[in-house]
Amino acid sequence: MNGIEYDRLEPFQAAAAKAFVPVRVRVPREADFRAAIGGGTVNGVAVGRIAGTPCSVHRDARLIGSADPEMLKVALIRRGRAGVEQDDQQCVVRPGDLVAYDTTRPYELRYWDDFDITVLAIPRARLGPSAELIRRRSASPLPVDVTVRSVVSGCLAGLGADLDGLSPAAGMHLADALVSLVTSAFTDEAPERAEPDSALGDRVVAHCLANLSDPDLSVGSVARRHGISVRHLHRVLSGRGISLAAWIRHERLLRIRRDLSNPALAHRTAAEIAARWGILDPTHLSRALKAEFGRTAKEIRSAGPEAEPAQRRSRPAVEDPA
């Protein structure tokens, strides 16, 4: 395959972190380790082709930082077998299978054979409400045995490594197509999949999540962006129990609280963090955080990272089925 080849673990881990998110790779014997990684990013969607010798890939709570992008990863297994585990779900995937996992929560991948996979890393915001449907199916194989999944498989298998040379317009259309294909594959049989009438609401939510950092994001700007009146926008979202202005404010405060509690961002002022999430006037920030979460900005920062619940493992790590 095309891509950069590695015979040492440390530079390969660094390349994987740069392409996607930080992970820890373990191998039976480092002297035997070989791997290659290639790909690029198209309009925010990362596409990677990874091949290598047997290994395990771990993303535990210590590697998950507030500055990491919130993404759902979808992998097409081209060669080899793999075990995938996330939360209390685990499975074995084989060539031709699609499998998803969420970078915001710990996961573990085990490759028992020489492997070759294509990976898409899609920002959760691009998937809208479908992100939750796909998340529920994480660590569950989707064999390519129906038309939609066969199309997705063929598309992923045909992706080349030279993606950075695409024009902005071509990259935008390709990214939109990939997101649509993945959504179709993973929600095609879900009984709770979004109904056609909710498509506008899905687009509105996805647009807002992707643009929380824009200080000009507002009810009016969202309505204009989607070519509808403010009244129509409120009607679309009322069925979801969403008051848009309050919801945008809450989503921004959630991310500000997360960044304030991150020791890696201790050098940034509360005002700088608020500006990162679209709040340019921090005058009432502490009061807003206190009302929303019971703590001021100073108290959130003093408390440090919030304790994460212990990761319970109801079953042993997924074993080689051979």
Rank of each mutant, 00 (worst) to 15 (best):
I4E: 10
D7M: 06
D7W: 09
F12H: 11
Q13C: 10
K18D: 02
V21W: 05
R24I: 05
R24A: 11
V25T: 14
E30G: 07
E30C: 08
A31K: 15
D32S: 14
A35L: 05
G39V: 08
T41D: 03
V45S: 08
A46S: 15
V47A: 09
A51F: 04
T53L: 02
C55A: 14
S56L: 13
S56G: 05
R59W: 00
A61P: 00
A67M: 10
D68E: 06
D68P: 05
D68G: 07
P69T: 12
P69I: 07
L72I: 15
A75E: 05
R78P: 00
R79F: 01
G80R: 10
R81Q: 13
R81F: 03
G83C: 07
G83W: 08
E85A: 15
D87K: 12
D87H: 12
D88I: 10
Q89S: 13
Q89M: 09
C91I: 11
C91V: 12
R94S: 13
G96F: 06
V99D: 02
T103A: 11
W112T: 09
W112G: 00
I117E: 05
I122E: 03
R124L: 04
R124E: 00
R126K: 14
L127S: 02
S130P: 02
R136D: 05
R137H: 10
R137Y: 07
S138Y: 03
S138A: 15
A139L: 08
S140A: 11
S140M: 13
P141H: 10
L142Q: 13
D145R: 14
V146E: 13
G154N: 14
G158Y: 01
D162L: 03
D164K: 11
L166A: 11
A175C: 06
D176E: 14
L181N: 06
L181A: 15
V182L: 06
T183M: 00
T183N: 05
T183V: 15
S184P: 00
E189C: 13
E192R: 14
E195R: 15
E195S: 05
D197A: 10
A199Q: 04
L200D: 01
G201S: 15
G201T: 03
H207F: 03
C208A: 12
N211T: 06
S213F: 08
D214I: 07
D216C: 07
A223L: 00
A223E: 01
R225A: 01
R225D: 01
R225M: 04
G227P: 00
G227I: 06
H234G: 02
R235S: 02
V236M: 00
L237G: 01
S238V: 04
W247A: 01
R249M: 02
I256S: 04
R257A: 15
L260E: 01
L265T: 13
H267C: 08
T269K: 11
A270E: 14
E272G: 13
W277Q: 09
D281K: 14
L285E: 05
R287F: 08
K290V: 00
K298E: 15
P305E: 06
A307P: 01
E308T: 14
P309R: 12
R312M: 04
